[in-house]
Design a protein around this nucleic acid. Structure first.
Lengths: 244, 244
DNA sequence: CGTCAAATTGACAAGGCTCAAGTGCCGTGG
DNA sequence: CCACGGCACTTGAGCCTTGTCAATTTGACG
């Protein structure tokens, strides 16, 4: 597992390094973190609300989301995650989970002991800053989602979600925003945007009819005019703080 | 202003101390922070999206909110704040604002230079941890709001917002949850819950009719059966991480 | 070729919005 | 002290976006 580990964590280092410039000593401590790697099926729950958590999760392959469930049974997806994302920085400082972590597709996850991560933070302010920043980007995205769900109509809402997905995907080096495969179902999109899957379906059709978006198969999206798409959705990448 | 400053910051110290136990040295560095105190009228914008920020704000008196504006002009309030709250921890690490900060009522705000706060964090891991935790609580509240706006119907949604307000108010030592004066207009409640003020008005009436809530004057709320109210709203205080 | 989940479509219901008018409260000025 | 003005709050009527229910089609995979 050791060779494995160094490979995996290299990506982690790059991510943190982008959030806050790290020294080679920082690099060493990060690569020195121990980890447990697990393969998970789609729709597995990694963490459930109320769980006592002692590890942070790093998503290595596949897609995941964070979600909460309302009293009436409604499921609300609160964020999507892609390879390279840290799934729950917050457990660095809170040991009880306040939401669920669920895989969307089959996935590979690295679990890093929180205590080790804390120690690294203590010895390296730069690493701490990087992780902190990551958490702040998270929060910024949540704010945008509140706006999205609260104040945009169904069609724009979905368009905005797609813009965010495409942008983060590109920024994670997973491909161009103009053409991509969605990992989530229309039900998932609905749960993320506060709509029903039926209405998501109709809204996607509307986006096609308006020429904003083309689909090749149900999950493959092509955006001919990416700037137009962003304008249509009222999407500005600022809140993602990509060039921190 | 110096005597003033120590007074004010005492509250700040208490808040951080609750989030992470601080030493007396930590206390000194916090009380040693310089600050600029300003009185603001209601509906003033403290920070606007896109602003370059070099100070963190601490709300000393009055109420404020954070909000974003959609392309179509819709205003979405993303969080409410009360005396003692730090309004933008995130500017500790991001210098461009991604949302607006607005007063709800007349308010008194302390501005603390970010550089000084950063220095304190560098020298005191405990202070850093406290501020970090505060930011994480923020994020947790945003997640709950996404759920609130996305998956609860109008009446429950408003009930939930009131529960949160009452709980945080109590926790901030501002009074019992069973009886309080709301600082915000019904328009504000609408902007926070993704509803129109008209529908907020009707929903409040519904809450009264169902016996969940009593009003004495438009803004004074009385909740006879507080546990029942929480059950009705599906409110559980866990996400507020009050007993960190 | 059968199976199952996801996607699609239609008909209808309903929750929430829009528009519009009216009321109540409070501070200001005469 | 009263009249006025403005803002927030109320209330009603009708519309429209989105939800519900249910049936059908599609597509991936064994």
């Amino acid at each position: 597992m050791n060779a494995d580990r160094i490979d995996r964590h290299a990506g982690f280092f790059e991510k943190l390094n982008r959030l806050s410039p790290l020294s080679s000593a920082d690099r060493e401590s990060i690569l020195g973190l121990s980890s447990r790697v697990a393969r998970l099926r789609s729709h597995s729950w990694i963490v459930s609300e109320g769980d006592l958590v002692s590890e942070c999760c790093l998503l290595l392959e596949g897609y995941a989301c964070r979600q909460k469930v309302a009293k009436n049974g409604g499921r609300q997806i609160v964020s999507f995650h892609m390879p390279g994302d840290i799934l729950d920085v917050q457990h660095l400082w809170f040991d009880v989970a306040d939401h669920n972590l669920e895989t969307i597709t089959n996935a590979v996850v690295a679990y890093i002991p929180i205590q080790e991560l804390r120690d690294v933070c203590l010895h390296s302010p730069a690493v701490a800053q990087a992780l902190w920043r990551d958490a702040l980007v998270d929060a910024s995205i949540f704010r945008e989602w509140v706006l999205n769900v609260g104040r945009r109509d169904a069609v724009t809402r979905i368009a905005h979600m797609l813009c965010e997905f495409a942008t983060r995907r590109e920024s994670a080096g997973l491909g161009p925003p103009e053409s991509f495969e969605l990992p989530m179902t229309q039900q998932d999109i609905g749960d993320a945007t506060g709509l029903t899957s039926v209405h998501v379906n109709r809204s996607l059709r509307t986006l096609e009819e308006r020429g904003i978006l083309r689909r090749e198969g149900a999950r493959h999206f092509r955006i001919a005019d990416w700037p137009r798409m962003q304008r249509y959705a009222g999407f500005t990448a600022g809140y993602l703080h990509l060039a921190a």
